[in-house]
Structures are given as structure tokens and as C-alpha cells.
Design a protein around this nucleic acid. Structure first.
Lengths: 158, 158, 158, 158
DNA sequence: TTTT
DNA sequence: TTTT
């Protein structure tokens, strides 16, 4: 009787690190920031804004999606589970790192635009990035991204 | 062994309807919209954008917060549970309405501003609406809404 | 900017109703009960146990899994979204019904056993029913279900 | 625009460690185990059962509830957020530990019974542990744990 | 260190 | 209409 569920919405801290293995498997990693607003208590105590960094780990079908679309600054929704793994550091001391293994990743509409000036998330709600990739292939969207560089049909993740 | 958990992020459809009862309890209701982006399948089928309307019900301590701060257009985060209740309509037919009973409501940073031109959600992440109530104090609203107009049957948005 | 997420753990009220369409698609429906324990307030008020019934709708790959394994009484974990649809009743009056469209269904370990006396959920945590179906096919489990009726390899959902 | 949400159901690994501070605040810590069932892939690969340990941190009103009711072996539902903090170890090396700061803790019905033979969770669904605190009153624990032993550096479970 |  |  067990449940291990994490839901995060935040911003990607740097371009994902993608590694391919001989076995054919692939893994993508990236840091994701979530922030809580600061506030001031009635007694005057100031609780400052706090940013939390999460290590996101992506496997299987989602890796290609992440490699192609997720960039530093992207606003993403991540669902997954917590996993803590241990390793021995240079001194032979056991150390631990906690990661979020993503089961689902979707773009979140932040209204922000990538470096090239195009708007990637013009619509409302989630772009069905992660899910769409697994179950269907999409044609040209009704309101296409008019960036000429990325306007070929198979370039679109949704 | 049971769990009934709902997490919504969306926009408020109209100003909350707040009712105070002789017992001293209060209830606030408002419709909340969540939207899924439309998309086009490979076979050409267009799946249009879809907006879902949720009936949010707020009780206890959160009511004053809702009455004061939640407005038509507000972007809010709602956590709660699903409840379906029945009532007899004018024809004596049993009808059902499903509502989301909120355990927690927070403002979501949409960057939008209310009608008076002030910015309510300038920061990042959640405004600690629900939680703040426990740690800071809100003014009692001057004028509870007990307007008879808003109490008619067709006031129900569903 | 939108999220519509439901997480339920409960018991199936009756065997799923599965319908196949000419288009090749299929849909399964079943009622799921979640229960809140009753309790007594400090002032003596008794708040009785309350059972909530949810209409679960399953599509695509999960349908076959549901048809084969989900039965009246099953303890299941359901993740999905809320959807309210309308229809005109016999009198031509528009009526609404709220359903939970499942994105993920898993067995939950209740320790209960089906009518035939076999134990279907012997282990801890989730049986990876829904997910496994989509991504891998499993061999004989390490601790096989020893019900002779259901012991053929392709009978196993995990 | 941010969300940091964790939902866990699992078993408590040892009796909570509760510390009271001069400021009047209190903190409780305990390890929580969540388990995924093992399984065997079609290619024969055995994926063993995996247990994940989470460091749960409880503050404020929930501490007294935890001290009184949560014990080694308890089945609990925890909602909260992920927080990673750093500290310098004996060698002056910066180390990190990830914790789950609980916003809500409830008993989960495991059907298990404590050492004294009484059944604490006889009903279905959650015991309204966290919530009950708001609506009913708990006894003040007779003997707050202020043992100096439990305050040493290697008291850290990670 | 838990649980099934 | 389920479950404890």
C-alpha cells in the first residue's frame, strides 16, 4: 500500500543533459526550479522568497521530446516519483542525491518566449507534449508556430 | 482505503457568490475554468480547445479570503475533493450537481491585474492565500453579499 | 494556464460496462466509491461516514485491461481529469453528468479477494497494470497467482 | 508560476523524533517508506521490489498529533512539498539532504494494529488526523522529548 | 528503518 | 452500487 507522487510546475535551469547508452536506452537530466513567494507575518517577520531546485530524470520515449523541446527557461509541468540514490564520493564516503523520475512532462504556458524570439506556448493550458508523443503523431497545428526555422511538419511536437 | 483528491489551476468565471447563514457559517461558490489546448491528429481530425467548468465550493476560514480577493478572471489554484449532491428540480425530478469542495485556495500568478489597475499577483509562484490565512489576519469584509438577485435558481451556472 | 487533475483510490461498484464501436475505439465505464470516515466533533455533532460515487471513463489501451481485470469490488487507483458533459433527457431538458476520464488505472492492494476465492493483489504497492500494458509485456511473475484458471502467460496483466 | 506538491502513502520506519525549541516551536521527523512491486520483464530481466525512504518533516500544529499517534509501522498519508537543505559535514564538505515538509498528515487504514493489541484504524479511508486537529482537541503529550542525545549531529538520518 |  |  504505497503511493509516491510528485507534481511540479517550474522553470528549467539549464539545457537538459542527454546521454545515450549502448543498450539503446537514453536518459535526460535537467534542474527545475519551483519558487514560493515571500511574505511578511503579522509580527513583522519577513519570510523571503524561496527557490527549490529539483533534479529531473527522464527516460524512454520522453527523452527525445525533452532533447528537442525543453530548454533553459522553459516552463514545464512534471509528474513523477521521488527517488534517492547513493554513490560513493571521491573520499569513499557514501552520499545521497534525490531525483524526480518523470512519468509525464508537458509544456506549461508561461507566455515567455525562447531566445530566438518566437512564442512557443501561445495557447491556454498544457501543450500535450509528453502524452501526444506517446500516443499519436500530430499534423500541423491549427494555429501554427510561424517561426520559419521550425515550421516543418515533423518538427512540431504537438 | 480511500482517496478523493482534486487539483485545479484555472480562471474564475465570475465574482464569487457568498452566503452567510444564521448559524454563523458561510459558503462561497464560484465557477472555475480549466482549458485543454486543441490539436489536430495525424488523420486530420481536429480536436478543438476544450474548456471545463468546475463548481467550486468554499467554507469556513477561506470564505472571507475568497470574498475579499477572488474575482472574475482571477487565476487560482484549488485543492479539494469531489462531491456530488442531488436536489429536486421544479418538476420534482432528482438532479445531480458535482462540486469541488476546496480545502485550499491560493492565488496563481497570472500577471493579470484586477479592474482597479493594481497588480495583485506581482511575484512568482503562489500567493499564500489559503495558508496566509492561518498566519496573518485579513480584514472582515464590510458588506457580505446577501443580495436576493444572486439567490435565484438559474443562478446555477450548470 | 490550466490544470485539471484528479487522484482517486476506491472500490469499484459494479463490473465495468465496456462498449466497442465500429471505428475500432472502445470505452469502459464503471462507478468508483470513495469514502470518508465519519467522526464526532468536540461539541457532540456526529458527522457520519460519507461515500462519494465517481463515474470513471476509460478509453484506448486501458480498456482491455479494465475489461479483463477490473471487477465489482476491486480496489483501484485512478488518475485523470474531470469532464462534465450535457445531454437532453426524455423531456428535452438539458442535463449534466460529471465523469472522471482516466489517464491511468492501477490496482491497489486491498488484500481483498474476488468471488472465486483467489487473491488477485498479493503484493505491496501498486500493481503496474495500466502502465505496464502500455510499455512492456511481462512474463510470469516471480510469485505467480496460483489460480489455475488464470495462469496462462498471456493472462497476466504485469 | 510554480507548484511543488508531493503525495505519499507509506509506512513509518521508526518512531518520530520530536524536538521542542525555546521559541515554542516544535519539529517532528520520521522516515517514511514507499514501495514499488518488483516484476519480471518479457526478456527475463527481473526488476526487484524497490523501497524508497522519505524524510518527513512536520511543524506547528501537526507535531503534537504526530508525537501522540504516529509510530513505527504506522500507515500514513502525507501531503507536502520537497525541500532540499544543505549543511557542512564533519569534514567541512557541503552536503545536501532532501526532505518532505508535510502540510497534511493523515492515518491510512492499513488494518495493522499497534503493539498493545488495540486496533487504531478500524474504519475505511483516512482517519482525519491532520484535519481533526482543527476540529477536535488532542491531549497535550505528557513528556516532550528534549533528550540531548537526540540532538547530536549524527542524529541526522541521512 | 517500514510494509505485504 | 463498493469497501471497512
Amino acid at each position: 500500500m504505497s503511493l509516491n507522487k510528485v507534481i511540479l510546475i517550474g522553470n528549467v535551469g539549464k539545457d537538459p543533459d542527454v546521454r545515450y547508452f549502448d543498450s539503446g536506452t537514453a536518459v535526460a537530466n535537467f534542474p527545475l526550479a519551483t519558487s514560493e513567494r515571500g511574505y511578511t507575518l503579522a509580527n513583522g517577520t519577513v519570510v523571503p522568497e524561496r527557490t527549490e531546485w529539483h533534479n529531473i530524470v527522464v527516460r524512454r520515449d520522453q527523452v527525445a521530446f525533452v532533447e528537442k523541446w525543453v530548454k533553459k527557461g522553459s516552463g514545464v509541468y512534471v509528474e513523477g516519483k521521488i527517488r534517492t540514490r547513493s554513490y560513493d564520493d571521491q573520499s569513499g564516503v557514501k552520499r545521497y542525491v534525490t531525483e524526480i523520475h518523470a512519468d509525464r512532462i508537458e509544456f506549461y504556458n508561461t507566455g515567455t518566449r525562447p531566445a530566438d524570439g518566437t512564442t512557443t506556448n501561445a495557447g491556454t493550458g498544457f501543450q500535450q507534449g509528453g502524452q501526444a508523443q506517446q500516443t499519436t503523431s500530430y499534423q500541423q497545428p491549427a494555429q501554427p508556430d510561424i517561426s520559419s526555422e521550425s515550421n516543418s511538419a515533423d518538427d512540431l511536437p504537438f
